[in-house]
Design a protein around this nucleic acid. Structure first.
Lengths: 205, 205
DNA sequence: CCCTAAATTAACCAAATGGTTAAACCATTA
DNA sequence: TAATGGTTTAACCATTTGGTTAATTTAGGG
Protein backbone atom coordinates (compact mmCIF):
# COMPACT_ATOMS: atom_id res chain seq x y z
CA UNK A 1 0.00 0.00 0.00
CA UNK A 2 2.47 2.54 1.22
CA UNK A 3 4.77 1.38 -1.50
CA UNK A 4 2.30 1.83 -4.29
CA UNK A 5 1.01 5.01 -2.76
CA UNK A 6 4.32 6.67 -3.14
CA UNK A 7 4.75 5.26 -6.57
CA UNK A 8 1.49 6.72 -7.81
CA UNK A 9 1.97 10.05 -6.16
CA UNK A 10 5.47 10.15 -7.55
CA UNK A 11 4.34 9.22 -11.03
CA UNK A 12 1.80 12.01 -10.95
CA UNK A 13 4.29 14.56 -9.75
CA UNK A 14 6.74 13.58 -12.43
CA UNK A 15 4.20 13.69 -15.21
CA UNK A 16 2.89 16.98 -13.89
CA UNK A 17 6.37 18.44 -13.76
CA UNK A 18 6.96 17.48 -17.37
CA UNK A 19 3.70 18.98 -18.50
CA UNK A 20 4.03 22.18 -16.51
CA UNK A 21 7.65 22.67 -17.45
CA UNK A 22 6.85 22.21 -21.10
CA UNK A 23 3.62 24.13 -21.45
CA UNK A 24 3.43 26.42 -18.47
CA UNK A 25 0.65 26.67 -15.96
CA UNK A 26 -2.15 27.75 -18.27
CA UNK A 27 -1.01 25.60 -21.17
CA UNK A 28 -0.80 22.40 -19.15
CA UNK A 29 -3.73 19.96 -19.29
CA UNK A 30 -4.84 17.75 -16.44
CA UNK A 31 -5.90 15.03 -18.88
CA UNK A 32 -2.47 15.03 -20.44
CA UNK A 33 -0.84 14.69 -17.04
CA UNK A 34 -3.11 11.79 -16.18
CA UNK A 35 -2.29 10.09 -19.48
CA UNK A 36 1.44 10.48 -19.04
CA UNK A 37 1.18 9.20 -15.49
CA UNK A 38 -0.79 6.21 -16.77
CA UNK A 39 -3.74 6.82 -14.51
CA UNK A 40 -7.29 8.09 -14.48
CA UNK A 41 -7.83 11.80 -14.35
CA UNK A 42 -9.92 11.53 -11.20
CA UNK A 43 -6.90 10.17 -9.42
CA UNK A 44 -5.14 13.46 -9.92
CA UNK A 45 -7.80 15.14 -7.87
CA UNK A 46 -7.70 12.33 -5.37
CA UNK A 47 -4.07 13.03 -4.56
CA UNK A 48 -3.81 16.73 -5.41
CA UNK A 49 -7.12 18.45 -5.10
CA UNK A 50 -6.91 20.93 -7.93
CA UNK A 51 -4.73 22.06 -10.80
CA UNK A 52 -3.54 24.94 -8.67
CA UNK A 53 -2.55 22.66 -5.80
CA UNK A 54 -0.80 20.31 -8.16
CA UNK A 55 1.09 23.16 -9.72
CA UNK A 56 2.02 24.42 -6.30
CA UNK A 57 3.53 21.06 -5.42
CA UNK A 58 5.46 20.88 -8.65
CA UNK A 59 6.73 24.41 -8.26
CA UNK A 60 8.00 23.82 -4.77
CA UNK A 61 9.68 20.56 -5.64
CA UNK A 62 11.29 21.93 -8.75
CA UNK A 63 12.73 24.94 -7.01
CA UNK A 64 13.91 23.37 -3.80
CA UNK A 65 15.16 20.11 -5.17
CA UNK A 66 16.84 21.25 -8.32
CA UNK A 67 18.06 24.76 -7.72
CA UNK A 68 18.69 25.86 -4.20
CA UNK A 69 20.49 22.85 -2.80
CA UNK A 70 23.86 22.89 -4.55
CA UNK A 71 24.02 26.64 -4.81
CA UNK A 72 23.72 27.19 -1.10
CA UNK A 73 26.48 24.72 -0.40
CA UNK A 74 28.91 26.49 -2.68
CA UNK A 75 28.19 29.84 -1.12
CA UNK A 76 28.61 28.45 2.35
CA UNK A 77 31.89 26.72 1.58
CA UNK A 78 33.75 29.17 -0.59
CA UNK A 79 35.48 32.02 1.19
CA UNK A 80 37.33 33.48 -1.77
CA UNK A 81 35.50 35.82 -4.15
CA UNK A 82 37.34 34.75 -7.28
CA UNK A 83 36.98 31.11 -6.36
CA UNK A 84 33.30 31.61 -5.65
CA UNK A 85 32.75 33.07 -9.08
CA UNK A 86 34.55 30.18 -10.75
CA UNK A 87 32.76 27.46 -8.82
CA UNK A 88 29.39 29.11 -8.90
CA UNK A 89 29.36 29.75 -12.62
CA UNK A 90 30.55 26.28 -13.50
CA UNK A 91 28.07 24.57 -11.21
CA UNK A 92 25.17 26.78 -12.06
CA UNK A 93 25.57 26.55 -15.82
CA UNK A 94 25.88 22.82 -15.40
CA UNK A 95 22.69 22.53 -13.38
CA UNK A 96 20.78 24.66 -15.82
CA UNK A 97 22.08 22.81 -18.84
CA UNK A 98 20.84 19.59 -17.36
CA UNK A 99 17.44 21.13 -16.63
CA UNK A 100 17.04 23.73 -19.34
CA UNK A 101 13.30 24.12 -18.84
CA UNK A 102 13.48 25.09 -15.20
CA UNK A 103 14.68 28.69 -15.39
CA UNK A 104 11.99 29.67 -17.82
CA UNK A 105 9.37 27.79 -15.83
CA UNK A 106 10.29 29.59 -12.64
CA UNK A 107 10.58 32.89 -14.41
CA UNK A 108 7.17 32.52 -16.02
CA UNK A 109 5.43 31.81 -12.76
CA UNK A 110 7.18 34.56 -10.87
CA UNK A 111 6.50 37.02 -13.67
CA UNK A 112 2.83 36.24 -14.03
CA UNK A 113 2.27 35.70 -10.34
CA UNK A 114 4.49 37.98 -8.31
CA UNK A 115 4.31 37.48 -4.59
CA UNK A 116 5.23 33.86 -5.12
CA UNK A 117 8.66 34.51 -3.84
CA UNK A 118 8.17 36.22 -0.53
CA UNK A 119 6.84 33.04 1.00
CA UNK A 120 8.50 29.77 0.17
CA UNK A 121 11.62 30.84 -1.61
CA UNK A 122 12.80 33.72 0.48
CA UNK A 123 12.36 31.60 3.57
CA UNK A 124 14.48 28.95 1.97
CA UNK A 125 17.21 31.04 3.50
CA UNK A 126 19.59 31.43 0.64
CA UNK A 127 22.61 33.12 2.16
CA UNK A 128 22.51 36.23 0.04
CA UNK A 129 24.03 38.35 2.77
CA UNK A 130 27.11 36.18 2.81
CA UNK A 131 27.62 36.98 -0.85
CA UNK A 132 27.14 40.69 -0.29
CA UNK A 133 29.70 40.68 2.49
CA UNK A 134 32.17 38.61 0.54
CA UNK A 135 32.03 41.01 -2.39
CA UNK A 136 32.39 44.09 -0.21
CA UNK A 137 35.17 42.61 1.90
CA UNK A 138 37.08 41.39 -1.12
CA UNK A 139 36.93 44.87 -2.58
CA UNK A 140 38.23 46.39 0.63
CA UNK A 141 41.09 43.92 0.69
CA UNK A 142 41.95 44.75 -2.89
CA UNK A 143 41.21 41.27 -4.21
CA UNK A 144 38.65 42.74 -6.60
CA UNK A 145 37.72 46.28 -7.56
CA UNK A 146 34.88 48.20 -5.95
CA UNK A 147 31.54 47.19 -7.39
CA UNK A 148 27.95 47.21 -6.20
CA UNK A 149 27.22 43.65 -5.12
CA UNK A 150 23.88 43.70 -6.90
CA UNK A 151 25.48 44.65 -10.18
CA UNK A 152 27.97 41.85 -9.93
CA UNK A 153 25.48 39.24 -8.78
CA UNK A 154 22.99 40.06 -11.50
CA UNK A 155 25.71 40.08 -14.12
CA UNK A 156 26.78 36.62 -13.05
CA UNK A 157 23.27 35.26 -12.99
CA UNK A 158 22.36 36.89 -16.29
CA UNK A 159 25.30 35.44 -18.17
CA UNK A 160 24.73 32.02 -16.62
CA UNK A 161 21.00 31.71 -17.05
CA UNK A 162 19.94 33.76 -20.03
CA UNK A 163 21.85 31.91 -22.74
CA UNK A 164 19.99 28.73 -21.84
CA UNK A 165 16.62 30.41 -21.58
CA UNK A 166 17.17 32.15 -24.88
CA UNK A 167 18.61 29.15 -26.64
CA UNK A 168 15.91 28.97 -29.30
CA UNK A 169 16.64 32.57 -30.09
CA UNK A 170 20.43 32.43 -30.10
CA UNK A 171 21.00 29.08 -31.74
CA UNK A 172 19.36 30.01 -35.05
CA UNK A 173 20.68 33.53 -35.16
CA UNK A 174 24.23 33.09 -33.96
CA UNK A 175 24.97 29.44 -34.69
CA UNK A 176 23.13 28.66 -37.92
CA UNK A 177 20.81 26.49 -35.89
CA UNK A 178 23.63 24.06 -35.21
CA UNK A 179 22.63 22.23 -32.05
CA UNK A 180 26.01 20.65 -31.49
CA UNK A 181 27.81 23.95 -31.85
CA UNK A 182 25.51 25.54 -29.34
CA UNK A 183 25.99 22.69 -26.87
CA UNK A 184 29.74 23.17 -27.13
CA UNK A 185 29.25 26.88 -26.71
CA UNK A 186 27.32 26.38 -23.48
CA UNK A 187 29.90 23.93 -22.23
CA UNK A 188 32.71 26.36 -22.91
CA UNK A 189 30.87 29.06 -21.01
CA UNK A 190 31.46 27.23 -17.74
CA UNK A 191 34.94 28.77 -17.80
CA UNK A 192 34.45 31.58 -20.32
CA UNK A 193 31.88 33.40 -18.23
CA UNK A 194 33.98 33.15 -15.11
CA UNK A 195 37.00 34.48 -16.99
CA UNK A 196 34.95 37.27 -18.48
CA UNK A 197 33.75 38.32 -15.06
CA UNK A 198 37.08 38.02 -13.32
CA UNK A 199 38.78 40.17 -15.96
CA UNK A 200 36.21 42.81 -15.33
CA UNK A 201 36.44 42.86 -11.55
CA UNK A 202 40.22 42.87 -11.45
CA UNK A 203 41.33 45.68 -9.14
CA UNK A 204 42.50 48.84 -10.87
CA UNK A 205 46.24 48.95 -10.54
CA UNK B 1 -15.10 54.09 -43.39
CA UNK B 2 -11.42 53.67 -43.94
CA UNK B 3 -10.89 55.90 -40.99
CA UNK B 4 -13.02 53.92 -38.62
CA UNK B 5 -11.72 50.67 -40.06
CA UNK B 6 -8.25 51.47 -38.97
CA UNK B 7 -9.47 52.67 -35.65
CA UNK B 8 -11.24 49.41 -34.84
CA UNK B 9 -8.49 47.23 -36.19
CA UNK B 10 -6.03 49.31 -34.25
CA UNK B 11 -8.06 49.11 -31.06
CA UNK B 12 -8.23 45.36 -31.38
CA UNK B 13 -4.53 45.04 -32.01
CA UNK B 14 -3.73 47.19 -29.03
CA UNK B 15 -6.06 45.34 -26.70
CA UNK B 16 -4.75 42.05 -28.01
CA UNK B 17 -1.16 43.14 -27.48
CA UNK B 18 -1.91 44.03 -23.88
CA UNK B 19 -3.64 40.74 -23.22
CA UNK B 20 -1.04 38.58 -24.93
CA UNK B 21 1.87 40.43 -23.38
CA UNK B 22 0.37 40.06 -19.94
CA UNK B 23 -0.94 36.52 -20.02
CA UNK B 24 0.87 34.82 -22.85
CA UNK B 25 -0.68 33.02 -25.78
CA UNK B 26 -2.50 30.28 -23.90
CA UNK B 27 -3.47 32.48 -20.98
CA UNK B 28 -4.99 35.20 -23.12
CA UNK B 29 -8.77 35.23 -23.60
CA UNK B 30 -10.54 36.41 -26.70
CA UNK B 31 -13.46 37.70 -24.66
CA UNK B 32 -11.13 39.79 -22.58
CA UNK B 33 -9.54 41.28 -25.68
CA UNK B 34 -12.97 42.13 -27.05
CA UNK B 35 -13.95 43.77 -23.78
CA UNK B 36 -10.82 45.84 -23.57
CA UNK B 37 -11.22 46.88 -27.18
CA UNK B 38 -14.80 47.86 -26.44
CA UNK B 39 -16.28 45.65 -29.13
CA UNK B 40 -18.17 42.44 -29.64
CA UNK B 41 -16.21 39.25 -29.65
CA UNK B 42 -17.41 38.35 -33.12
CA UNK B 43 -15.63 41.39 -34.46
CA UNK B 44 -12.33 39.89 -33.46
CA UNK B 45 -12.97 37.04 -35.82
CA UNK B 46 -14.23 39.43 -38.45
CA UNK B 47 -10.91 41.22 -38.60
CA UNK B 48 -8.54 38.47 -37.49
CA UNK B 49 -9.93 35.06 -38.26
CA UNK B 50 -8.70 33.14 -35.26
CA UNK B 51 -6.82 33.49 -32.01
CA UNK B 52 -3.75 32.14 -33.74
CA UNK B 53 -3.96 34.68 -36.55
CA UNK B 54 -4.51 37.48 -34.06
CA UNK B 55 -1.54 36.37 -32.04
CA UNK B 56 0.54 36.20 -35.18
CA UNK B 57 -0.29 39.80 -36.00
CA UNK B 58 0.52 40.96 -32.51
CA UNK B 59 3.78 39.06 -32.47
CA UNK B 60 4.95 40.51 -35.75
CA UNK B 61 4.03 44.04 -34.82
CA UNK B 62 5.63 43.81 -31.41
CA UNK B 63 8.90 42.48 -32.70
CA UNK B 64 9.34 44.61 -35.78
CA UNK B 65 8.05 47.86 -34.42
CA UNK B 66 9.55 47.84 -30.98
CA UNK B 67 12.76 45.90 -31.14
CA UNK B 68 14.52 45.65 -34.45
CA UNK B 69 14.25 49.20 -35.70
CA UNK B 70 16.56 51.18 -33.46
CA UNK B 71 18.99 48.36 -32.93
CA UNK B 72 19.71 47.98 -36.60
CA UNK B 73 20.39 51.65 -37.00
CA UNK B 74 22.98 51.66 -34.24
CA UNK B 75 24.79 48.69 -35.68
CA UNK B 76 24.83 50.24 -39.13
CA UNK B 77 26.11 53.57 -37.92
CA UNK B 78 28.69 52.71 -35.31
CA UNK B 79 32.11 51.68 -36.62
CA UNK B 80 33.93 51.50 -33.31
CA UNK B 81 33.61 48.41 -31.11
CA UNK B 82 33.81 50.22 -27.81
CA UNK B 83 31.39 52.88 -28.98
CA UNK B 84 29.03 50.24 -30.26
CA UNK B 85 28.96 48.53 -26.89
CA UNK B 86 28.24 51.83 -25.12
CA UNK B 87 25.50 52.95 -27.47
CA UNK B 88 23.94 49.55 -27.86
CA UNK B 89 23.70 48.81 -24.16
CA UNK B 90 22.29 52.23 -23.32
CA UNK B 91 19.72 52.14 -26.08
CA UNK B 92 18.74 48.54 -25.59
CA UNK B 93 18.27 48.76 -21.84
CA UNK B 94 16.25 51.88 -22.42
CA UNK B 95 13.96 50.24 -24.96
CA UNK B 96 13.45 47.23 -22.74
CA UNK B 97 12.79 49.32 -19.66
CA UNK B 98 10.05 51.12 -21.51
CA UNK B 99 8.54 47.85 -22.69
CA UNK B 100 9.40 45.41 -19.93
CA UNK B 101 6.89 42.78 -21.00
CA UNK B 102 8.21 42.36 -24.51
CA UNK B 103 11.35 40.31 -23.90
CA UNK B 104 9.52 37.71 -21.90
CA UNK B 105 6.68 37.65 -24.38
CA UNK B 106 9.02 37.01 -27.28
CA UNK B 107 11.02 34.52 -25.29
CA UNK B 108 7.93 32.57 -24.30
CA UNK B 109 6.69 32.24 -27.83
CA UNK B 110 10.06 31.30 -29.26
CA UNK B 111 10.63 28.82 -26.46
CA UNK B 112 7.29 27.08 -26.79
CA UNK B 113 7.13 27.38 -30.52
CA UNK B 114 10.60 27.14 -32.02
CA UNK B 115 10.74 27.63 -35.75
CA UNK B 116 9.08 30.99 -35.30
CA UNK B 117 12.32 32.71 -35.96
CA UNK B 118 13.57 31.28 -39.21
CA UNK B 119 10.81 33.03 -41.14
CA UNK B 120 9.91 36.55 -40.24
CA UNK B 121 12.64 37.56 -37.90
CA UNK B 122 15.72 36.17 -39.56
CA UNK B 123 14.58 37.72 -42.82
CA UNK B 124 14.27 41.01 -41.07
CA UNK B 125 17.91 41.19 -42.01
CA UNK B 126 19.51 42.21 -38.77
CA UNK B 127 23.13 42.85 -39.64
CA UNK B 128 24.62 40.26 -37.38
CA UNK B 129 27.56 39.70 -39.70
CA UNK B 130 28.56 43.31 -39.37
CA UNK B 131 28.85 42.79 -35.63
CA UNK B 132 30.89 39.63 -36.04
CA UNK B 133 33.29 41.40 -38.34
CA UNK B 134 33.58 44.43 -36.14
CA UNK B 135 34.47 42.30 -33.14
CA UNK B 136 37.03 40.25 -35.05
CA UNK B 137 38.58 43.25 -36.75
CA UNK B 138 38.78 45.22 -33.53
CA UNK B 139 40.60 42.33 -31.93
CA UNK B 140 43.07 42.15 -34.79
CA UNK B 141 43.72 45.86 -34.51
CA UNK B 142 44.28 45.53 -30.79
CA UNK B 143 41.35 47.69 -29.82
CA UNK B 144 39.91 44.84 -27.79
CA UNK B 145 41.25 41.43 -26.80
CA UNK B 146 40.53 38.26 -28.75
CA UNK B 147 37.11 36.89 -27.94
CA UNK B 148 34.57 34.71 -29.71
CA UNK B 149 31.98 37.10 -31.09
CA UNK B 150 29.16 34.88 -29.90
CA UNK B 151 30.43 34.93 -26.35
CA UNK B 152 30.63 38.69 -26.33
CA UNK B 153 27.29 39.23 -28.03
CA UNK B 154 25.45 36.89 -25.73
CA UNK B 155 27.11 38.41 -22.69
CA UNK B 156 25.94 41.84 -23.76
CA UNK B 157 22.41 40.72 -24.48
CA UNK B 158 22.19 38.69 -21.29
CA UNK B 159 23.22 41.53 -19.04
CA UNK B 160 20.92 43.94 -20.85
CA UNK B 161 17.79 41.82 -21.08
CA UNK B 162 17.78 39.39 -18.19
CA UNK B 163 17.62 41.87 -15.31
CA UNK B 164 14.37 43.22 -16.69
CA UNK B 165 12.90 39.81 -17.40
CA UNK B 166 13.86 38.62 -13.96
CA UNK B 167 12.79 41.75 -12.19
CA UNK B 168 10.18 40.05 -10.02
CA UNK B 169 12.86 37.67 -8.90
CA UNK B 170 15.66 40.14 -8.27
CA UNK B 171 13.72 43.00 -6.77
CA UNK B 172 12.51 41.07 -3.70
CA UNK B 173 15.71 39.14 -3.19
CA UNK B 174 18.35 41.78 -3.82
CA UNK B 175 16.49 45.03 -3.20
CA UNK B 176 14.07 44.30 -0.34
CA UNK B 177 11.27 44.65 -2.86
CA UNK B 178 12.03 48.36 -3.19
CA UNK B 179 10.65 49.35 -6.59
CA UNK B 180 12.32 52.71 -6.69
CA UNK B 181 15.71 51.25 -5.83
CA UNK B 182 15.37 48.72 -8.61
CA UNK B 183 14.37 51.38 -11.10
CA UNK B 184 17.46 53.33 -10.20
CA UNK B 185 19.49 50.18 -10.48
CA UNK B 186 18.25 49.55 -14.01
CA UNK B 187 18.88 53.14 -14.96
CA UNK B 188 22.45 52.95 -13.68
CA UNK B 189 23.02 49.81 -15.71
CA UNK B 190 22.90 51.79 -18.93
CA UNK B 191 26.49 52.76 -18.21
CA UNK B 192 27.46 50.11 -15.64
CA UNK B 193 26.98 47.22 -18.02
CA UNK B 194 28.95 48.91 -20.76
CA UNK B 195 31.78 49.64 -18.32
CA UNK B 196 31.69 46.09 -17.04
CA UNK B 197 32.00 44.73 -20.55
CA UNK B 198 34.64 47.14 -21.72
CA UNK B 199 36.85 46.36 -18.73
CA UNK B 200 36.62 42.72 -19.62
CA UNK B 201 37.46 43.08 -23.30
CA UNK B 202 40.38 45.44 -22.78
CA UNK B 203 43.36 44.04 -24.68
CA UNK B 204 45.96 42.20 -22.61
CA UNK B 205 48.92 44.45 -22.34
C1' DC C 1 -12.11 -16.09 3.81
C1' DC C 2 -14.41 -12.01 4.63
C1' DC C 3 -14.64 -7.38 5.88
C1' DT C 4 -13.03 -2.74 5.68
C1' DA C 5 -10.69 1.12 4.06
C1' DA C 6 -7.96 2.95 0.69
C1' DA C 7 -7.04 3.18 -4.36
C1' DT C 8 -8.80 3.46 -8.94
C1' DT C 9 -12.01 3.97 -12.59
C1' DA C 10 -15.99 5.11 -15.88
C1' DA C 11 -19.30 8.18 -16.56
C1' DC C 12 -20.82 12.75 -15.82
C1' DC C 13 -21.27 17.78 -15.12
C1' DA C 14 -20.99 22.72 -15.41
C1' DA C 15 -18.36 26.44 -16.77
C1' DA C 16 -15.30 28.45 -19.92
C1' DT C 17 -13.78 29.20 -24.41
C1' DG C 18 -12.90 29.72 -29.39
C1' DG C 19 -15.67 30.19 -33.05
C1' DT C 20 -20.11 30.80 -36.07
C1' DT C 21 -24.49 32.65 -37.87
C1' DA C 22 -28.08 35.43 -39.05
C1' DA C 23 -29.88 39.60 -38.39
C1' DA C 24 -29.41 44.59 -37.58
C1' DC C 25 -26.95 48.86 -38.39
C1' DC C 26 -24.79 52.46 -40.86
C1' DA C 27 -22.72 55.07 -44.39
C1' DT C 28 -22.17 55.89 -49.19
C1' DT C 29 -23.91 56.55 -53.71
C1' DA C 30 -26.73 55.98 -57.73
C1' DT D 1 -34.49 57.70 -50.89
C1' DA D 2 -33.63 53.13 -51.79
C1' DA D 3 -30.25 49.87 -52.80
C1' DT D 4 -25.72 48.22 -51.59
C1' DG D 5 -21.86 46.61 -49.11
C1' DG D 6 -19.06 46.86 -45.32
C1' DT D 7 -19.43 46.83 -40.03
C1' DT D 8 -21.25 45.38 -35.64
C1' DT D 9 -24.04 42.77 -32.61
C1' DA D 10 -26.88 39.21 -29.93
C1' DA D 11 -27.58 34.72 -29.62
C1' DC D 12 -25.75 30.23 -30.39
C1' DC D 13 -22.83 26.13 -30.85
C1' DA D 14 -19.37 22.50 -30.17
C1' DT D 15 -15.45 21.40 -27.77
C1' DT D 16 -12.39 21.57 -24.19
C1' DT D 17 -11.40 21.50 -19.56
C1' DG D 18 -11.22 21.29 -14.57
C1' DG D 19 -13.65 18.93 -11.42
C1' DT D 20 -17.16 15.47 -9.18
C1' DT D 21 -19.68 11.18 -8.08
C1' DA D 22 -20.83 6.72 -7.48
C1' DA D 23 -19.43 2.38 -8.22
C1' DT D 24 -15.61 -1.13 -8.66
C1' DT D 25 -11.22 -3.03 -7.57
C1' DT D 26 -7.41 -4.06 -4.53
C1' DA D 27 -4.83 -5.06 -0.45
C1' DG D 28 -4.28 -6.12 4.38
C1' DG D 29 -5.91 -7.54 9.01
C1' DG D 30 -8.87 -10.25 11.93
Amino acid sequence: MTDKDLKTEEKILEAAANEFLQKGKSGARMQEIANNAGINKALLHYYYRSKDKLFESVFTVVIKKLLLSKVNKIIEEEKDAIGLVRRFVATYIDIINKNPMIPFFVLEEITKNPGRLTNSMLNSGLPINKVFNLINDSAKQGVIREIEPQQLIINILSMSIFPVIGRNMFQPILFNDNKKAFDQFLESRKTEVADFIIRSIQPDK
